[in-house]
């Protein structure tokens, strides 16, 4: 999965128009970023790759880029290695 595909999924999770979520956005400024969105992120990231993400790790994230790193989506947009 590429970075832009993953960002599109985050748009969907948050119920925002496509293209709203960008890597440099701060999580606490994201509309609809709540516990349900957080769980949705974990479930989706885990379903796309073999990573296992704990909610405690997400609490340490401050930007969307941090989330992408957790989900092992490369910032340069390369395909995620399964």
């Amino acid at each position: 999965m590429t970075q832009s595909e993953f960002l599109n999924e985050l748009d969907e999770i948050l119920g925002l128009p496509a293209g709203t979520v960008r890597a440099d956005r701060k999580l606490d400024e994201l509309e609809n970023w709540d516990s349900m969105a957080l769980i949705s992120f974990i479930v989706l990231a885990e379903s796309h790759s073999n990573v296992s993400i704990s909610p405690a790790q997400i609490v340490t994230c401050s930007t969307v880029a941090d989330l992408l790193a957790l989900a092992q989506v490369r910032a340069n947009g390369a395909e995620l290695q399964k």
Binding site: E9, E12, N32, M36, I39, S40, V43, L44, S47
Partner: peptide, 14 residues
């Protein structure tokens, strides 16, 4: 599928 529901939750609800 759970991931599908979670991803489309807002759109589905609407």
């Amino acid at each position: 599928s759970l991931p599908e529901i979670l991803r489309k939750r807002h759109a589905l609800r609407k």
